[in-house]
Every structure is written in structure tokens, then in C-alpha cells.
């Protein structure tokens, strides 16, 4: 049995802060199912392990697609890697796959970089025979991506931006509410995006008695159930996102607790970035001197 190096085969910038990469990983491409994620690190000794959802897989090429937003230290470093570079660590597929079944009408809501993990789920829901309506939201047109990929299979795509630069000038909760109010209510809502968006999607749907699935992205170290850093309260019970999730019944998730826990290392991360920027400046100064 051989594991090939996790080589970056393709890289594309999708929007101001969002990147797409296809990475060689035939063993993960073979096993992955919609809803699952990977953990990666870019330095074998000193790197940090971060979870990212698998947006797609290509069996012929033996690759998986990851889409990420540059928000923290590791994602920013990851964005500097180029085609031909290798990831130090790539583990997956992790988590429980999405339950794909024929239900009737399914509304898929994606916000920001959450649009990426929504894609394979929406596509599989369509393939299973559902009517699929997709609601995609971003702050503005520049931050929106993949809408054409959704348009290729979805029965309807509704785009919302905060400033109206693309689609409706609305939050995703507005069309979601309208869809719930229609005579033919959706049989399922899938919402993936920032925790605050998922929280409001759940509250929008709650009065209409429609089931809503959310996919959570939390702090993780091992991704195999060992550290408990990803724990979240669901229906009063402690659950681990890595082995029990990442998808949960949105109506039962304690979003406030989740949002709070995501702040755990924020101040340290900020300091680290400042230190890093400082080092970069020093290096730049050294290089400049050399050139002179």
C-alpha cells in the first residue's frame, strides 16, 4: 500500500479571500462522501492541524478539492502555496457522511465559504431525485463564488448579497422564510455557513416545523475523537463534531456556546500573526540590504 505525496495539482482564487485547490489524494477521493472533511497541516513539526470540508473529488485524477477562506494563520500560509507544492499532513475523509435520500423539496442555504461544502451535498440531493433550491449568500459580489456550479444542476438558485451588488439585497434568511411560507413547504433545509448565519437560519425555520441540518466547523486537533476540543452541546448532550458530526439537527444545537468556544484562541492567533508579520518585515529588510 502506498500513499502518494499530497501534491497541489491546481489552484484558483475564487474571490477576495477564498481559494480553491485540488490536492492529490487518491485514497481519500476513493472513500469520501458528501458532508465529510479532512484535516491538514502545512508543516510536519510546527504546523497546526485545521479541518476543511471536502468540496469535491475527482477519481480519475485521484484528487480532492478543498475551498478555504484566509481567516487564520494556517489558511493564510496555505494560500501562499502553489501548484507542485506538497501539504505536510492530510487526513481524511473524516466525520459522518450526509444522509442523502429522496425527500421531495430540499432547500440548501450556503453563506460565505460555507457555499463550498454545500455544493456536493446539494448535488447529491438532486441526484437522489429531490427538487433542490439553493440560496447562496455573501457580503458582496466579489466574495461570491461557485454560483454557476450550482446553477448547472439546481432547480433554482437565489443569490443574496448584503449590498445588493449581486442578486437580491437581502440576508439569506429572507428567501428562506418565503420558501417556508409557501404552500409546498420544504421537506428539509440544509444550512452551512458562519455559525451566526446558521443560528438565524435555524430560528427562521423553527416556527414552520421543517427539519434543518447544519454542518459545524469547530476547533480540532486530531479529528478522530481523541481531544474533545470540538465539543458542542446538542439537545443538552455533549457531542464531538469530529466523530458525531459534522452535521447535526440544527434545532438542537447550542449556537451561542459554539460561537463562544470559537473565540478560545483568538487573542493568541492575533499575536501570532503580528509576530509573523514582524518576522516577514525583518526578512524583507535583510533582503533589501543584500540587494543594495
Amino acid at each position: 500500500m502506498i500513499i502518494e505525496p499530497y501534491t497541489i495539482l491546481y489552484k484558483e482564487q475564487l474571490s477576495a479571500h477564498v481559494y480553491l485547490m485540488r490536492v492529490k489524494a487518491p485514497h481519500i477521493a476513493r472513500e469520501r462522501q458528501p458532508g465529510q472533511f479532512i484535516l491538514l497541516s502545512i508543516d510536519h513539526d510546527y504546523g497546526e492541524r485545521i479541518p476543511l470540508t471536502i468540496a469535491d473529488a475527482n477519481l480519475e485524477e485521484g484528487s480532492i478539492t478543498i475551498i478555504f477562506q484566509t481567516v487564520g494563520y494556517t489558511t493564510k500560509q496555505l494560500a501562499t502555496l502553489e501548484v507542485g507544492d506538497e501539504l505536510a499532513v492530510l487526513l481524511g475523509p473524516l466525520g459522518q457522511p450526509t444522509k442523502i435520500e429522496k425527500l421531495g423539496r430540499v432547500v440548501c442555504v450556503g453563506g460565505g465559504v460555507g457555499i463550498a461544502p454545500l455544493h456536493p451535498i446539494a448535488k447529491s440531493m438532486k441526484a437522489a431525485g429531490n427538487q433542490v433550491i439553493c440560496v447562496l449568500g455573501a457580503r458582496n459580489k466579489e466574495l461570491l463564488f461557485m454560483e454557476d456550479n450550482f446553477a448547472a444542476f439546481a432547480d433554482e438558485v437565489i443569490v443574496c448579497t448584503d449590498d445588493g451588488s449581486a442578486g437580491r439585497k437581502d440576508l439569506v434568511t429572507a428567501p428562506l422564510k418565503e420558501l417556508c411560507q409557501m404552500d409546498e413547504k420544504p421537506q428539509l433545509v440544509v444550512a452551512i455557513g458562519p455559525p451566526i448565519m446558521m443560528k438565524f437560519c435555524v430560528e427562521t425555520v423553527r416556527p414552520y416545523n421543517v427539519p434543518v441540518v447544519v454542518s459545524l466547523n469547530t476547533i480540532m486537533v486530531d479529528g478522530t475523537g481523541m481531544c474533545g476540543g470540538c465539543r458542542v452541546t446538542v439537545g443538552g448532550e455533549t457531542k464531538f463534531v469530529c466523530v458525531d458530526g459534522p452535521e447535526f439537527d440544527g434545532l438542537k444545537v447550542d449556537f451561542d456556546g459554539l460561537i463562544q468556544r470559537l473565540q478560545a484562541y483568538r487573542s493568541q492567533e492575533r499575536r501570532q500573526e503580528e509576530q509573523h508579520a514582524c518576522r516577514m518585515q525583518q526578512q524583507a529588510a535583510v533582503l533589501e540590504k543584500k540587494n543594495v
Binding site: I3, I28, E31, Q36, L90, L91, G92, P93
Partner: peptide, 9 residues
């Protein structure tokens, strides 16, 4: 073989 989770990989 590192980065290999039997059960999932």
C-alpha cells in the same frame, strides 16, 4: 503509513 484513519480512510 501516517495520516491514515482505519474506519474512514
Amino acid at each position: 503509513l501516517p495520516n491514515f484513519l482505519v474506519g474512514r480512510t
